[in-house]
């Protein structure tokens, strides 16, 4: 209900490898997210989760492997055009502090989608309304709480009508009492049929919202499956140990 996301597509990550010098961050990652599904990626820090997200929208180019939207490889596409199809939300929000909330949302609409000022504002205000921040349009990001800022960041990404959304520990920088509001927006979006990859430490969210949970460790997906299977019948000892520590 957050937005009519009838345009979402399926996402496939196949055998993605990436090394920074001698540091092999991704060692053949596979991840399949059907159209409209939500995949949560869990795992210890340093396991490559955030890097994986960045190879999907090619903020980092993978060394090897493929990324497919709707079954078609995107590695040959113009990366800037690809990123308009794949929205991303960051741990630190990355809002533009020198612009009002409204302009944060309209900037890409106007400059990239070439919408007129009025039309961009209409879209942006509607999007802000859906994350519950219509009244904050003229505020600066610094005047908002962390939770509100993250909801603006989500609205900013959604305004471009992405076909896939990536969330990189979207609630990790928030005070505990602010987490729920952001997770609520994300759950709404998932229910509305957005294809999502959510890197998270919120196991409750993963259990309730995800269609697939993938456990990453040392640059590979060690185990993936429906949440019940991952949380109740984990097979791999490293996953069991991880769950023991976080649950």
């Amino acid at each position: 209900m957050t937005t009519a996301t009838t345009t979402s597509v399926s996402l496939d990550v196949r055998g993605v490898h990436l090394a920074f010098g001698p540091n092999r961050v991704l060692r053949g990652v596979d991840l399949s997210v059907p159209r409209g599904a939500t995949a949560c990626v869990i795992g210890p820090s340093g396991s490559g989760k955030s890097t994986l997200l960045r190879t999907i929208n090619r903020l980092i180019e993978p060394d090897r492997g493929d990324v497919l939207l709707d079954g078609r490889s995107v590695l040959g596409d113009d990366p800037d055009a690809l990123r308009q199809r794949v929205g991303m939300v960051f741990q630190q929000f990355n809002l533009f502090p020198h612009m009002s909330v409204l302009r944060n949302v309209t900037l890409a609409l106007r400059r990239l989608r070439k919408l007129g000022a009025d039309e961009a504002e209409t879209v942006a205000r509607a999007q802000l309304e859906l994350v519950g921040l219509a009244g904050k349009a003229n505020s600066r990001p610094a005047q908002l709480s962390g939770g509100q800022q993250q909801r603006v960041a989500i609205a900013r990404a959604l305004a471009l009508r992405p076909e896939v959304m990536l969330f990189d520990e979207a609630t990790s920088a928030l005070d505990p009492e602010l987490v729920k509001g952001v997770l609520g927006v994300m759950a709404d979006l998932s229910a509305a049929g957005m294809t999502m990859v959510v890197v998270t430490h919120e196991m409750g969210f993963a259990r309730q919202v995800a269609d697939t949970v993938a456990f990453m460790d040392r640059g590979v997906v060690l185990e993936a499956g429906p949440p019940e299977a991952i949380f109740e019948r984990a097979e791999h000892p490293r996953l069991r140990r991880f769950l023991d520590q976080v649950l």
């Binding site: 519950g132 219509a134 729920k180 509001g181």
Partner: peptide
Amino acid sequence: ASTEEDDDDTASYAATEGDRR
């Protein structure tokens, strides 16, 4: 001075977060 109403509570989900301005 923000004269706008804080309409967090009208959000479509249970908004639990406080306003920390």
